[in-house]
Design a protein around this nucleic acid. Structure first.
Lengths: 224, 224
DNA sequence: GTCACTTCTTAAGCGATTCTTAACGGCCCC
DNA sequence: GGGGCCGTTAAGAATCGCTTAAGAAGTGAC
């Protein structure tokens, strides 16, 4: 996970002490923007896109509930967590029904707040993490390889599996037996790997996979 | 839908007293199905479509956390609320990170539980935000697809739902089971998705939806 | 209530893709 | 130059997806 790709979070909290404190807590996992009143929150909520919002219940100029209502009315569906000292049931119900997705009362536990925010921003899409090798990139989910020039090649299941295994450890030399027992049925003939290597070389490029004579195959190079 | 359209809720709770009690509490707003162990919960969660689930943390046969993990791994993205006596922070974090969307501790307030469930099942009917994919644009409200050249195609409800799901996450590969359980009745045959994909391809264009052989279907490309 | 129409669902045959085996010719290394 | 190793090709078998058709279910009009 690169630090550049932190999700963005809008924190609306008027307490001069608590605001920066919460912001600091969340700064590890989010790019936090802190504003101290509802009007600023509304403006930023409408003009910029956020991955999540944490909003205090009692705010100057425009209170939290009104802020959430205003955002929802404008079609903003960003996950919103209310963080407040007001903890009785009626307040919770009002906050949630106004359009908030979660409600945490002060004093709060930092770990729980973080977990609840993760739950709100989580998407159940199994993160397909592309594997790069040289000027190519393999997306295991769609089993496709894209070159830096944009050419897109789709692979079959076995091709993708084999390429994925090789690309996962660049420079390492895999024996045929290793690859066979790991990704194919053990009864298969050793020549099977050769066939798939040939398929990959033809589909992508001759030089993708290097032959180590008498040993096996290898992608990339440890010295590169 | 001929009968009153109460949302469906799967309640997994092994306590012989508390189970029926919670079921009765929720019966006003949901069509509640109560089961007493994780295995039954898993089976019903996978074979039928639910608008929400309330799951106890400690369950016989298969505990709540394992149940949630198993459901999420199968692509079930139904909102899940954990309802349990275990209230310390570590337990909350574990439950939420396993895939739950909310965590309520016993003793709980009926009003708060209901409000949290409303928040989970609420859909922000966005004022018909069109979803773009390639040179086409899907308007979920009117269930119609417009190409950049102005050609307008109207879809049926299921066609629109399926296309909307695919177009909402371009590049993501959806399995048939995933699409079935999310947008159709779970008793349906997998071939049903194929039929609808065929309809869409004929109505819009052959190349809209890409087949990932042995896995499922995909729209667009993650890297675009 | 009945009819006509649209939409949803199931099923099955056909066609295409993918997997696996095998054989032959060329290449590498000693 | 020789023996083994590798690349290439082809083809059968198995699996998977596409297409079609037709009944079931739902919807609206009269």
């Amino acid at each position: 996970m690169t630090t550049a790709a932190l999700p963005s979070l809008l924190l609306v909290e008027d307490d001069a002490v608590l605001g920066p404190l919460i912001a600091a807590l969340l700064a590890e996992d989010y790019r936090v923007r802190l504003v101290a009143n509802g009007q600023d929150g509304l403006h930023l909520g409408l003009t910029e896109t956020w991955d999540a919002m944490v909003i205090d219940r009692g705010l100057p100029v425009m209170d939290g509930i009104s802020l959430i209502r205003a955002l929802r009315e404008k079609g903003i569906s960003t996950p919103i967590l209310i963080l407040t000292a007001l903890g009785d049931t009626a307040e919770k119900v009002r906050g949630l029904d106004a359009g908030a997705n979660d409600y945490v009362t002060k004093p709060f536990d930092a770990g729980e707040l973080a977990a609840r925010l993760r739950a709100l921003t989580r998407t159940f899409a199994p993160a397909s993490t592309p594997v790069g090798f040289g000027p190519w990139e393999l997306d295991p989910a769609s089993r496709s390889v894209r070159s830096v020039y944009g050419r897109l090649v789709s692979l079959t299941a076995k091709e993708g599996e084999l390429l994925g295994a090789l690309a996962a450890e660049p420079g390492r030399v895999f024996t045929r037996e290793e690859l066979l027992s790991q990704h194919f049925q053990a009864t298969d003939q050793p020549g099977l790997i050769d066939t798939y290597v040939h398929h990959l070389r033809r589909k992508i490029a001759k030089t993708v996979i290097r032959t180590v004579h008498g040993v096996g195959y290898q992608i990339g190079d440890a010295h590169e």
